[in-house]
């Protein structure tokens, strides 16, 4: 379980370039570094549910990103918070 405040990097992985898939990690945070806000709960992996496959239960986190760092524009201090499943997060 990742504690609030843990620095994480979102995996820089692009399954959509390799074939049919269903991904709930938006493109604009992949490879980016953020901070765990909190653990939201545990839910079946939507990447499997979308194909009616048995879906392992995964930890879901709220992860905070500096908004201007994502885009090279915006107001300092503004943030984007995204729900991300644990397998998409690595130590940063």
């Amino acid at each position: 379980m990742l504690a609030p405040g843990t620095k994480v990097r979102v995996r820089n992985d692009w399954p959509e370039t390799r074939g049919p898939c269903h991904i709930r990690t938006p493109h604009y945070v992949r490879g980016e570094t953020g901070v765990v806000v909190r653990h939201l709960g545990d839910f079946p992996n939507p990447e499997d549910l979308a194909f009616a496959r048995p879906a392992p239960i995964l930890a879901l986190y709220h992860v905070r990103f500096a908004q201007p760092a994502l885009w090279g524009e915006g107001m300092a201090g503004d943030e984007v918070v995204v729900e991300i499943f644990e397998p998409w997060l690595e130590a940063a």
């Binding site: 709930r24 939201l40 939507p46 915006g74 107001m75 943030e79 918070v81 995204v82 991300i84």
Partner: peptide, 26 residues
């Protein structure tokens, strides 16, 4: 996001932090 808010005439003072929540999962 601040430009988007202006479509509704909503102007946030610079000292108010804006947190965008992207509802991506459950």
């Amino acid at each position: 996001p601040r430009g988007l808010l202006s479509e509704w005439g909503t102007v946030l003072p610079a000292e108010v932090k804006l947190r965008v929540v992207d509802s991506t999962a459950d």
